[in-house]
Design a protein around this nucleic acid. Sequence first.
DNA 1: TAGGCCATCTGGTCCT
DNA 2: AGGACCAGATGGCCTA
Length: 217
Amino acid sequence: MSPKATCAPDDLRSSRDAVTLSSFPPTLRNTVKEAGDASGHSSDNLPRSSLTVTGGGPASVKHPKSRCEQSGQRGRRRMKANDRERLRMHNLNSALDALRSILPALPEDAKLTKIETLRFARNYIWALTETLRMADQHGHTQGYLASDLSSPASVFSAEWDSASPAEAGYGTSDQRNSYTSVNEMSCKLCTRDESSAVPVTFYFKCGESDLRDTWHY
DNA sequence: TAGGCCATCTGGTCCT
DNA sequence: AGGACCAGATGGCCTA
């Protein structure tokens, strides 16, 4: 009942070798680049320490010399490294925002956390892949998929549901709560052309679950 | 108030 | 040598 992905999506670990801008589609790549050029000053990721020094971490304990106290070449190198690291994290957050933006629309005020975004994206990609595979099996690939494949959003409509039918009890008045606390997200994918469409509804989770927990109709 | 999430600082490691 | 990446630690903010 629970189809397993043919690929191995479990390894979400990114590495400097695997994740590069060139690995993104042009549109997303541009988005990421723009975010980088903008120093990651998105509304959600305003650098908190651009003007004030916060955090400091264990280093402030283990290494009494703070940012302000460090002097000389060592201090300058450290400050440059901090700036680079800050920008790197801003770029990473911008990329995550770009990823959120291409995922199926969420209810208002239901912004996914970082880990939820990654997990949900993985499952969403898997669901799209399965949909294509099933459409191909039914011989419906030629007509509508070929022309729209570059734009999944135009091929599929996605409807959010607070919970799967089997777990309808999870629904609460608080959408955000129902999505994140319960750790359940479901997405119904339908092809646009109902006549030739393969009706597929996926329900999957954004929590720490294996794709084996994903099921479809 | 506890717990989750996040931004930041920092030193270590690897790569160019 | 310098930059990129990573993980650990810490404090701030928010919510239940």
